[in-house]
Design a protein around this nucleic acid. Structure first.
Lengths: 168, 168
DNA sequence: CTGAATTTTCAAAATAAATTGAAAGTAAAA
DNA sequence: TTTTACTTTCAATTTATTTTGAAAATTCAG
C-alpha cells in the first residue's frame, strides 16, 4: 500500500472509530489528518484534503484545541495560522482520559453520591436494591478513576507495561 | 429525596451519560429502569414509565439482550414476556468491555497492522512518522487490551482493587 | 384449527446533529 | 487610516439518527 493511500485509509477509519465513542466524525478525521501530517498545516489545507467547509474546519479545530490535542503554530513571515497535533500517543490518550473524566465521570459520581441519600427504611427491599445498584456504580467509577490515574501518572510507558505484564 | 424521585433522576442522567459514549439515550434509560426495578417488568411497563412507543421499547430491549445486559424472564401462568437486567455492576462492566473490545478495538488494531506495511523507504521522514504514529496507537491499543483483560479476568473485585491500591 | 394476545418489523415522521457559506469580525500590512 | 488577508460566527440547510405506530408475524389457549 502506498503512503498516501494508507493515510487516507487511516483518516477515514479513525473518523468512523470516533463515532462509536461520542466523537463527531469530522473532528476525528481532522485529528487523524494532523496526526499523519509531518509539518503544521492550515485551515485551507484541511478544507481541501477532507473537502469540508471553512466553518466546519474552524469549529472542530477549536474543539480539538479545547481538548489540548491540537495547537496553533505561528510561522514567522506567514500570515496564516498553522496547526499541529501532539504526536506522542501516550500524551494524547492521557489528555483525552483526563478531560473525559473531568467532564463526564466526575459529575456522574457526584450525582450518584446524592442519589444514595434516599429517604426511607434502608431495610426496605426497593430501597436496598436501589442503593446497592447506585453504590455499585460509584464503586466501579472509583476503580476506573484509580486505573486512569495510574495511566495518567505513569510518565514512563514501561512502568505500567511491566506492572501489567506481571498479571497477564 | 424520595425513592421514586431518585429513580427518575437516575434514569434520566444515565440516559444523558450514555449519549456521551455512543449509546442512544433511550437504550440507556431502559437499562437504567431495569437496573432499579426489583422485579422483572414488561414492555408495557417500560412504555408507560418512559412514555415511549412499543416499537422503540422492543428494538432497544433486543439490543440490550444482544449486549447480554438484559434477559427475558418467563413467568409461569403469564402470557407476556418479562425482562430483567443483570444487577451486578461488575458483571455489567465486564460484558460491555468485552463486547466493545470485540466490536471496535480488535478491528481497529487489525487495520492498523495492515497500515504499518506501507511501501517505501523506512528512513523517509513522512513514512517514518506515519509508521510511528500508527505503531504508537497499536501499542496503546495493546496496553488497553491488557488492562481490560485484567479487569475482565479479575472475578474478585478486591484483587484488582488491591493491586491498584499499591500504586495509588 | 381459530382467534385473541403479544411481539416484531419497518416505512414514514419527527427530532437531533453536523455542515455550509456568506456576513461580520480582527488584525497585520500598506 | 484604509486596505487586505484571514478567522470566526451562526442562521439556514442538509444529513443522520431516533421514534412512532400500524400492519404483519408469531405464539399460545381453547
Amino acid at each position: 500500500m502506498k503512503l498516501s493511500e494508507a493515510k487516507q485509509q487511516f483518516i477515514s477509519s479513525w473518523g468512523a472509530f470516533g463515532t462509536h465513542w461520542g466523537i463527531n466524525r469530522t473532528m476525528a478525521q481532522i485529528h487523524a489528518l494532523l496526526l499523519v501530517s509531518v509539518d503544521p498545516i492550515t485551515q485551507d489545507d484541511i478544507m481541501e484534503q477532507l473537502t469540508i467547509s471553512r466553518g466546519n474546519v474552524n469549529m472542530n479545530i477549536r474543539d480539538l484545541i479545547g481538548w489540548g490535542l491540537v495547537e496553533r503554530v505561528i510561522i514567522t513571515g506567514e500570515r496564516k495560522e498553522y496547526f499541529t497535533a501532539e504526536k506522542d500517543i501516550w500524551k494524547v490518550a492521557t489528555k483525552i482520559i483526563k478531560e473525559r473524566k473531568k467532564r463526564e465521570l466526575d459529575p456522574m459520581i457526584k450525582l450518584l453520591t446524592q442519589l444514595e441519600n434516599v429517604e426511607g427504611d434502608k431495610k426496605d427491599k426497593d430501597i436496598k436494591q436501589f442503593t446497592e445498584v447506585i453504590g455499585g456504580i460509584k464503586k466501579l467509577g472509583g476503580q476506573a478513576d484509580k486505573m486512569l490515574d495510574i495511566m495518567v501518572k505513569a510518565e514512563e510507558n514501561w512502568f505500567t507495561a511491566n506492572i501489567l505484564k506481571m498479571w497477564k
